[in-house]
Design a protein around this nucleic acid. Structure first.
Lengths: 146, 146
DNA sequence: AAACACTACATTGTACACAATTAAATTTAC
DNA sequence: GTAAATTTAATTGTGTACAATGTAGTGTTT
């Protein structure tokens, strides 16, 4: 009878724990990020810049799965804070290049403690963390094909 | 040398694929939900009501990990669409009770196809889906303790 | 080289999400 | 039995997210 509605139960959804978990984890970052006056979105943008030093908005968007509508205000904020510069490419004026400032580069030294603090909060076995990482990436790949 | 910054690489983060994956999955729902004129947040609220018929905003918030700041406008929208009623409890005027309307109840019949359509999009082995479900719930439990 | 298509980013509008505050009802303490 | 504390929603302010549109620069076609 209710059998046909089993699929609609919240506890049988895969999407829901994914959605809720992502939000909760971002929320757990907050106290650690507050110390750096960064939001989560600003933080992941900085993660990329700490790896690359310079990148276009388009490339950054591809890495973070974000479009210019989201990135433009985030990058303007980070520029205000003095962590990066935004300037048009000489070769192609359409491209906006984002570059770390000295201050932004220095922040990296202090930021290494963030992943450590978060790791301590996430109560997963190392093997579970690896499995989770693998399955999420498989799902992500599946999303972008379609 | 760069060894100490390994933890800051985007590809070594667990939080990031979680965050990105959640967003992409919500995005994949959109075409199916558009058909019902529902957003993802409205949809998960309806999932709960299809199980319960009547619930307080507080209880709903606990189930969905959302606060009244998010739920109040979402529930007002669903009321506008005619899917639910919002009225104060007689026993305790502080409590706002949300109840399915006839129309909201009927929607359940058509909505069963949504999880099926989404299931077909998520290219995971059944066993991976179970593992993902288990690990996400473990993580979620860990979040709420702390 | 002028028209056309395309690309990269910015802007606009809608909808969350959450912290912090407010407001009203209820419970607890004294 | 009233003042204080607590509880439940609503409101306000800030910051994403994303679809859709706008705009300027670049490439292509003929």
């Amino acid at each position: 009878m209710a059998q046909e509605f089993e699929e609609l139960k919240l506890c049988n959804q895969l999407c829901f724990p994914l959605y809720a978990c992502a939000k909760e984890v971002v929320r757990m970052y907050k106290p650690y990020l507050d110390e750096f006056d960064l939001t989560y979105t600003q933080y992941i943008a900085m993660l990329v810049l700490w790896e690359q030093e310079e990148i276009s908005v388009k490339q950054l968007g591809e890495l973070l799965y974000l479009d210019s509508g989201t990135l433009t205000p985030v990058l303007k904020k980070l520029e205000q804070k003095g962590y990066l510069h935004r300037e048009r490419s000489k070769e192609d004026e359409r491209v906006l290049l984002v570059t770390l400032t000295e201050v932004g580069e220095e922040l990296k030294q202090k930021a290494v403690k963030i992943p450590r603090q978060m790791g301590a909060c996430m109560k997963l076995e190392p093997e579970e963390a690896l499995t989770l990482h693998r399955i999420l990436h498989k799902l992500l790949d599946g999303c972008t094909d379609s």
